[in-house]
């Protein structure tokens, strides 16, 4: 009985001390989630208030879009080409080779194009934003901006997040088009099909509505990449080491969020009947 009482008292002590014994990693996770939520909330409150940094927004759109064009284009071309070459033998085996243009286009437009482009975008643009803002933070350039009569959050964060949200869907439209061009060339390596017939087959079966969910989810991908890059850079500490960490964390967190948003998006589009 004595032992039972002692055990009960011991357990009660554990429960009493529970709030103090939250594992540090879990505490860090919740704190970080709260900070990101507050940072995102600030984006919406600051973003709609004048003064608008329109010129800087346009400059960021040009830089972000222009910087990714060649890499996204090349990757998309290879993707379409490889996908077509690899899908051809199994479709031949089942005697449905004529379906190849539609199958490639459907997978590229609905899933592979947006996700692969977003991952490349996170690696190139997201890490760049994280490193740039991190470097500005540790060298006091953000403070200097504030002293110079500028709201650094609007000038640096709002413009970049809006630019990534707008430019990624445009890049995805471009990358999907180049992928389909790659697929057409891939088809003609071993088979023969005219340009008109190839694209005619695609648009005969692929509804225009298939593009809409892809572009909407891509907008969220772009928002996530921009927001994470800006958050990690804006709160960078510990000098140059912190800058490297900001860039690295941006890629890791953005990539994870891209898959998470994709998972949610596919459920929503399925519910709304966009997948058929």
């Amino acid at each position: 009985m004595m032992a039972f009482s002692a055990g009960t008292a011991y357990k009660a002590d554990i429960y009493r001390n529970m709030p103090l014994t939250i594992p540090p990693k879990m505490k860090f996770f919740f704190e970080e989630t709260g900070h990101i939520a507050r940072f995102t909330g600030k984006f919406f409150t600051e973003g709609f208030k004048p003064r608008y940094e329109f010129q800087e927004f346009l400059r960021q759109c040009f830089l972000i879009g222009n910087k990714s064009l060649s890499l996204v284009g090349l990757t998309a071309f290879i993707l379409g080409l490889v996908l077509t070459i690899q899908l051809r033998p199994p479709l031949l085996r089942y005697g449905v080779e004529f379906e190849l243009p539609y199958i490639v286009a459907d997978s590229v437009i609905r899933e592979i194009g947006p996700v692969i482009t977003a991952l490349i975008f996170a690696g190139k643009i997201g890490s760049g934003i994280g490193a740039e803002l991190g470097s500005m933070k540790v060298t006091e350039q953000i403070d200097a901006m504030e002293v110079s009569g500028t709201n650094p959050f609007k000038y640096l964060v709002v413009t970049r997040v809006l630019a990534t949200s707008l430019m990624l869907p445009l890049l995805v439209i471009m990358s999907c088009s180049i992928s389909l061009l790659g697929a057409y060339i891939g088809y003609n390596i071993k088979g023969q099909i005219s340009f008109e017939l190839f694209f005619g087959q695609i648009f005969q079966w692929l509804p225009f509505s298939a593009i809409i969910p892809s572009l909407i989810k891509t907008l969220f991908f772009g928002f996530a990449v921009g927001m994470v890059g800006c958050y990690r850079g804006y709160h960078s500490t510990k000098g140059t080491e912190g800058v490297g960490r900001a860039a690295n964390a941006t890629v890791v967190i953005s990539s994870f969020l891209i898959f998470l948003i994709d998972l949610v998006a596919v459920q929503i589009t399925d519910l709304l009947g966009f997948t058929s």
Binding site: S135, T139, E140, Q141, A144, V147, G149
Partner: peptide, 15 residues
């Protein structure tokens, strides 16, 4: 702030 200048330790020139 328009009437006060601030020279930062790290210079804070925009790269």
């Amino acid at each position: 702030r328009a009437r006060v200048g601030f020279l930062f330790q790290s210079n804070a020139l925009y790269d």
